[in-house]
Nucleic acid binder design. Structure first.
Lengths: 214, 214
DNA sequence: TTACTCATGTAAGTAGTTACATGATTCC
DNA sequence: GGAATCATGTAACTACTTACATGAGTAA
């Protein structure tokens, strides 16, 4: 469960409201973790109960309160502990690749649409991630500036370098996906030339597998 | 939700028990989707209620039953519908990359351990996926043979080609991750030479962010 | 006053994990 | 007889999503 660590890491730069935190996840696909606001509010309450973050509550209008969260010393310890723990990547679970495995149940046009959407999606992400990596390298984001201002200057190079390494890695990933989709489109073209089937017809309809009735 | 479609796609080759289906997901990290057996049994019951699969129940011992599932015509329709629907990739959610963003909170040794584990993990996956792609290309797996035997021969080339494309894509992905980890290790070496901090000491401990008390 | 952004939540449901539990069959 | 593998589940829990709901502040 990483949402909590993502939240704590953001709070390490400065106190924030749930809303501000949600924006960091939400604004664009730029960030490494994604979460919806109900989950963020719920998790913040839980972190507060556990003493990993604390809150400054200010009245907002008559019956509402603005809750600004900040990181506690216990939260700092937990963050440091988490970073030192080796993380094995999650098991594979990719709906696009799963579907592509069975493209023969659909039409060549369907496969083409899928590869095209994949291509565009990762081209956009590649641009966004690249732009973010560049901004980090030039130390231009608010977050990295705050981070640097709070850390010993001997650590500045490493702080920037690790973050740039992550976003450059995401750029490489996006490029790999773009290339996969391009090769997919070529494959569809090749299959279309070689096959007698109309491009909007399924290549091999799925068939029931009723066993011999006993 | 894709587990159901993964299950239906497997059942399109032949009737199987929950146990056999679980093995397909489980045997190794080779497959594109992962699920634990309780979820598989639960989902099969649900698919049965919805008429997408059906079951042949045979007594097993005194009080147990062996349930062999097969794909119904309605399941075939749903499978065909699903394949034709364009799938947008899931939002980013990668704990390893998230953690790497904050490696400065830990030590250089910690970062090194993480990159090393990442490297080994994806080297192993690369080999497994490559081997699987080769087997598919040579039409040597039981599943692909069954699939081909049930489809018109005009579709054979496409059936093999799509699956090979998926596993070749996974191989490329794994290589991208291996390269990322290698560059990460080089980065850690470089930072170690350039910094005065011991390799097992945190570079920049997280600090609390209590706001000015009001 | 209207629209937009800031701000905070609840409720209901789905998807997936982990622990626990049991029994049948097959092969040595 | 014992070990491995075949086989099927329940229960409790965590993580995440979607829909619904409301109210405050601010700028045109």
């Amino acid at each position: 469960m990483s949402l909590r660590h993502a939240l704590m890491a953001l709070l390490e730069t400065r106190p924030m409201t749930g809303y501000e935190l949600a924006k960091q996840f939400d604004v664009s696909a730029i960030y490494v973790w994604h979460a919806q606001h109900p989950q963020i509010y719920t998790e913040l309450r839980r972190l507060e109960r556990e003493g990993l973050v604390a809150v400054v509550a200010a009245p907002r209008g008559r019956r509402s309160t603005k809750r600004t969260y900040y990181l506690t010393p216990r939260g700092c310890d937990e963050l440091a502990r988490w970073v030192e723990t080796v993380q094995l990547p999650a098991r594979e679970r990719d709906e696009t690749y799963l579907k592509a495995t069975y493209f023969e149940f659909g039409s060549l046009d369907g496969a083409r649409r899928q590869f095209r959407a994949h291509l565009e999606h990762f081209q956009l992400l590649e641009r966004q991630w690249q732009a973010h990596a560049d901004q980090l390298r030039r130390r231009e984001t608010e977050l990295i500036r705050r981070r640097l201002s709070r850390a010993p200057s001997a650590a500045h190079e490493a702080i920037v370098a690790f973050k740039v390494h992550v976003y450059e890695g995401l750029v490489e990933r996006a490029r790999t996906e773009v290339e996969w989709a391009r090769r997919g489109l070529k494959l569809v073209d090749r299959l279309e030339r070689g096959s007698g089937v109309a491009a909007d017809e399924p290549l091999a309809r799925p068939r029931p597998t009723r066993p011999d009735s006993r």
